[in-house]
């Protein structure tokens, strides 16, 4: 009995500590200017206000950045899901020359950190005139090895007999892909969609490098930029953080089962 109480006490306290930054963030975002910079710190607003959010959306116009983030995350997710699923399917269900070699090369490329490619990619996009456009974010996100790998693993488990019978029924390769593989792979696609969406939403370094108009910024970049000017306005910055975090939080809470399954899948070694 005592042991159980201790265990729960520990779990609840550490749970509270884990959530404390969020609680404070939300609470401070509803405070008036300067009311979060007091000693002793306030946990709850003394006067509840929406001022910070109003400032963000009127004067600082973050709605544009919110829109950018949504648009880019959705587009990158859709495009990469399409490309990755096609490639994953090919690697899982076809035999062709160089298959193993290509796949191995792709897998081993995963140890190369993305930072290595940033400079040349930047120069390349400059030559295309894509810097400071949405294409600068979409292009490098069109396909990725991790996604191909995840889909391949999943599709390999789909019995060949399903494909064979569809072929006998006269289905062509593309029909097999989108009538059989895609529906059956839906769980892994949903998982990957959440991963990609959140990854794009949360990404910072790359958008920081390639976007330089404030109206092109994604939310994290806009937020970091705001931080430069408003270091002394914690309440405003907290409201900005809430807006940045809220969408991913909602998506996670709604689809957490898929997300957590995805982490476990990713951790399954070949």
């Amino acid at each position: 009995m005592g042991k159980k109480t201790l265990l729960y006490g520990f779990l609840i306290i550490s749970g509270f500590l884990t959530l404390a930054p969020f609680i404070w963030m939300v609470s401070a975002s509803f405070m008036l200017d300067g009311h979060a910079s007091v000693f002793p710190p306030r946990f709850l607003p003394d006067e509840f206000t929406f001022d910070q959010y109003k400032t963000l959306f009127s004067r600082l116009d973050v709605s544009r950045n919110l829109l950018n983030s949504f648009f880019l995350s959705v587009v990158v997710t859709l495009v990469s899901l399409t490309f990755n699923s096609m490639a994953g399917f090919a690697f899982a269900k076809y035999r062709f020359a160089g298959k193993d070699a290509i796949f191995k090369m792709l897998l081993s490329s995963m140890v190369i950190p993305a930072q290595v490619t940033m400079l040349p990619l930047f120069l390349m996009l400059k030559e295309f005139g894509f810097l400071n456009t949405y294409m600068a974010i979409i292009i490098p996100g069109m396909a990725n090895v991790f996604g191909i790998f995840l889909i391949r693993q999943f599709v390999m488990a789909i019995p060949d007999s399903l494909i064979e019978s569809a072929r006998i029924d006269g289905a062509n390769d593309f029909q097999i892909y989108y009538k059989i593989i895609i529906p059956l792979a839906a769980p892994v696609l949903v998982t990957l969609a959440i991963f990609t969406f959140m990854g794009t939403w949360n990404d910072f370094l790359w958008p920081l490098i390639v976007l330089n108009d404030s109206e092109m910024y994604t939310l994290p970049v806009a937020l970091a930029n705001l931080m430069g000017e408003h270091t002394k306005d914690p309440e405003l910055m907290m409201a900005g953080s809430v807006i940045t975090i809220l969408p991913v939080m909602v998506i996670f809470l709604a689809l957490q089962k898929y997300y957590i399954k995805g982490i476990m899948m990713g951790s399954v070694k070949e």
Binding site: V75, L78, L81, T82, Y178, K179, I182, L184, A186
Partner: peptide, 16 residues
């Protein structure tokens, strides 16, 4: 499932 995903694909193609 097929229908849903086709829908998603179509939306994707239109968005592009």
């Amino acid at each position: 499932g097929n229908l849903r995903l086709r829908l998603v694909l179509f939306i994707g193609l239109f968005l592009f």
